[in-house]
């Protein structure tokens, strides 16, 4: 019954202070949108890293003048390895054609000669090939006469991993910062709401209302603001993502050979729940300071 009464009074408060709350909710939505955007970026980077990490690809670049039989021997050795799934030979001309197909740079690259693209053996590894084993194989393969260079893509992967770690740290810091902002904004909004409702607070106290009775609606109002802001942010991000996805995916396919992903459902729920919790916290802190009932 008390909760019902608090809900009724909170709804009334939201209705009567809608201007105040509208301003708060719109700025909080932007704040939450930043967090959700950072999380979305992180998820896609993580997905990409995961994809690259597991895809296990090795490119063995061949010397320009490599003998056909040397290449054949090398190929046989590679195919004999238990880590190898398949080996394909890519000639200079094919490499050039493949590059031009994917490259979306403005300059006219069709003039590039085939020699600029070395022939290679593209080795696809079985899933869950150990990175250390791959490194050992690369080291051995380098010693073949026909081989100019071996690319395991480990450097890229490592760089992406460190980028990912930095990004996670950034997203975490951003979440903390935004939480502080939300606490401050909601705290301030509630402070104003308390000031505007001085009269009714006084009346309720004189009629024997407990602190909980007086504070309940304000906490609910703060919680609701946090909830609705986080919800709107998630909804806007979702809308934007699915509208832009076709375009994003072109880049993604070229870059990582995968589709972009959206934030996982449990994380979406977590964002909204966090929004509500931070809203409750903000109002509770504000009430402790400004509602000395």
């Amino acid at each position: 019954m008390d909760f019902k009464s608090a809900v009724t009074r909170a709804r009334r408060g939201l209705r009567e202070e809608r201007r105040l709350y509208l301003v708060a909710v719109s700025s909080l939505t932007v704040a939450f949108l930043c967090v959700a955007g950072a999380i979305l970026t992180m998820q896609n980077l993580a997905e990409m890293a995961d994809r690259w990490g597991r895809s296990g690809r090795v490119t063995v670049y061949l010397r320009d003048g490599a003998q056909g039989e040397d290449v054949q021997r090398l190929r046989a050795v590679l195919e004999g390895l238990s880590e190898t799934a398949s080996v394909t030979h890519l000639s200079s001309a094919e490499a050039r054609a493949q590059f031009l197909e994917h490259a979306d740079v403005g300059a006219d690259l069709s003039a590039l000669p085939a020699e600029a693209f070395p022939a290679s053996l593209e080795v696809t590894l079985v899933a869950d090939a150990e990175p250390e084993r791959v490194d050992a194989i690369a080291a051995r393969v380098t010693e073949f006469r026909a081989v100019q260079d071996v690319e395991t893509y480990r450097g890229w992967f490592d760089r992406l991993e460190s980028l990912l770690a930095a990004g996670r740290g950034f997203a975490f810091a951003l979440t903390l910062l935004v939480s502080l902002c939300v606490v401050a904004v909601i705290g301030n909004t509630i402070r104003l709401a308390v000031a505007r409702r001085r009269q009714e607070i006084e009346v309720m106290k004189l009629c024997g209302a407990t602190d909980g009775f007086v504070r309940g609606p304000f906490v609910l109002e703060g919680t609701f603001q946090g909830f609705i802001s986080a919800f709107l942010a998630v909804a806007l991000l979702m809308l934007g993502f699915f509208l832009l996805r076709p375009r994003i995916d072109v880049t993604f396919a070229a870059l990582a050979g995968m589709r972009s992903v959206f934030i996982e459902p449990w994380l979406l729920v977590a964002i909204i729940v966090t929004g509500a919790a931070v809203g409750a916290l903000g109002s509770a802190i504000s009430l402790r300071r400004y509602l000395t009932v």
Binding site: M1, D2, Q199, E200, V203, M204
Partner: peptide, 23 residues
Amino acid sequence: FKVVEHWTVFENVAIALEILSMP
């Protein structure tokens, strides 16, 4: 008086009972 101006007459009186959790 200490009545809440923007409340109705009913609400101003009922608040005392709501505080008592009366149905």
